[in-house]
């Protein structure tokens, strides 16, 4: 099992958001996590990546047999976890290529490898830039500074493609994208699918799943997985909306607390 989440509870600023998540992800699988606003999708993604002000109050997360919650953010990244941000951060003064080089070499250092020679690094970057159809000039601009929404999301996929994670978590990578940008992002993601790699796609909409077909779909509501199924569940949600799911979740919550 690559990722095993058991009864995970987490709070943000003292407010409980995740109220008992159970999820198992095997290598090679793509899981979609859907749900209405405020259901805890993004919180789950951030907890897995190790954001500091997200406090795990109970439950466990094991990644490749290790207690993930004990690892610092950068250690998780070194061990192959990658979060594509819902809102990628702008960092004026740090160039994209510098960030990529720092990230690649930090991981190699952790793995006991020498730095990637400059020529090989550039070759790798140029190849991946083509994959996400970015202009090379973006490499020399400050990280995400002045990028459009679509450019920021493509930049996330570029970083993912270069870092080649074991477990990629995409936090609403599709939101705010026009259809052309979505196709480019999906192409990047599909290229990275493989038997050694798992992906968690956090999304509000079914639309992305037309292009990235998941093996499993889970629906979150009120901080719990209330329904799991295959890709047909996503289509059902598209058709029926989240209302009936939320109603079910409320009934479950009432039963638990009652």
């Amino acid at each position: 099992m690559m990722l095993s989440i058991k009864n995970l509870h987490a709070s943000v600023d003292g407010k409980p958001i995740l109220r008992g998540i159970d999820l198992e992800v095997k290598a090679g699988e793509v899981h979609a996590i859907m749900g209405p606003n405020g259901s805890g999708k993004s919180t789950l993604a951030n907890v897995l990546a190790g954001r500091e002000n997200y406090e795990v109050t109970s439950g466990s997360v094991h990644y490749l047999g290790e207690n993930l919650l004990e690892l610092a953010t950068e250690e998780r990244a070194c061990k192959g976890i990658f979060l594509a941000f819902q809102y990628p951060v702008e960092i004026p003064g740090v160039s994209n290529i510098y960030l990529l080089k720092a990230a690649v070499n930090a991981r190699r250092k952790y793995q006991g490898l020498d730095e990637l020679p400059a020529v090989e690094f550039l070759k790798l970057v140029k190849e991946k830039v083509k994959l996400v159809e970015m202009k090379e000039e973006f490499l020399h601009r400050s990280v995400n500074e002045g990028f459009s929404g679509g450019e920021k999301k493509r930049n996330e996929i570029l970083q993912m493609a270069i870092l080649e994670p074991r477990l990629a978590i995409l936090d609403e990578t599709d939101s705010g994208l026009d259809i052309d940008a979505l196709k480019i992002v999906a192409k990047g993601v599909n290229t990275l699918r493989g038997p050694q790699r798992a992906m968690i796609l956090v999304t509000h909409y079914q639309r992305m799943l037309d292009y990235i077909v998941p093996d499993h779909v889970h629906v979150l509501a009120h901080g719990r997985v209330v329904k799991s199924g295959d890709k047909s569940l996503a289509l059902e949600l598209e058709e029926r909306g989240y209302g009936w799911i939320e109603q079910q979740a409320e009934e479950i919550a009432a039963a638990v607390t009652g």
Partner: peptide
């Protein structure tokens, strides 16, 4: 900025280097 620090750390860059990188970017 704590969001920038988290972003860099989520890209495998250790905290000290991330702080240096952001400080450097500030003065750059």
């Amino acid at each position: 900025d704590s969001d920038s620090l988290f972003y860099l750390r989520s890209r495998a860059i250790d905290e000290r280097t991330a702080r240096l990188l952001l400080t450097y970017a500030f003065a750059n």
